[in-house]
């Protein structure tokens, strides 16, 4: 019996639990550092060196390099910290939504607008 055996499965959804918090620590710590403009510049100057400085593993570094949002989540990233990485790229949460659902941003936005229409 493991701690994860009883976890509730919600389609397309991850709970940021102890397992993810440990797995993603270095990645999230790097993204947390992006609260500082100097750190954002340092990252942009040399992304690989910055990832190494924070001790990201190969999976995390690759997901950063390829801007793979679902990959970053699978590697333990928490969306609150990842949003700061997205900020460096000039992306907002609707860009992230589009990237994760495989939609264009326009289609993703239209889906939300449609959800607001009362039948």
């Amino acid at each position: 019996m493991t701690a994860t055996a009883a976890r509730r499965e919600i389609p397309g959804t991850r709970i940021f639990d102890a397992e993810m918090a440990q797995k993603g620590y270095a990645l999230n710590k790097m993204c947390y550092s992006f609260n500082s403009a100097d750190n954002r510049s340092a990252f942009s100057r040399d992304e690989d060196a910055y990832c190494r400085q924070y001790g990201l593993n190969a999976e995390q570094t690759e997901a950063i390099r390829t801007r793979n949002v679902l990959g970053l989540l699978a590697a333990g990233g928490n969306v609150y910290y990842l949003a700061k990485f997205a900020g460096i790229l000039g992306l907002d949460v609707q860009d992230l939504g589009a990237a994760q659902t495989g939609m264009t941003k326009e289609a993703f936005k239209a889906m939300l607008v449609a959800a607001g229409k009362v039948d």
């Binding site: 397309g12 989540l73 992230l96 939300l112």
Partner: peptide, 13 residues
């Protein structure tokens, strides 16, 4: 609201 995962964009009026 849901920002992360394949279910991003989920809302429930």
């Amino acid at each position: 609201h849901q920002l992360d995962g394949e279910r991003a964009g989920f809302v429930n009026r």
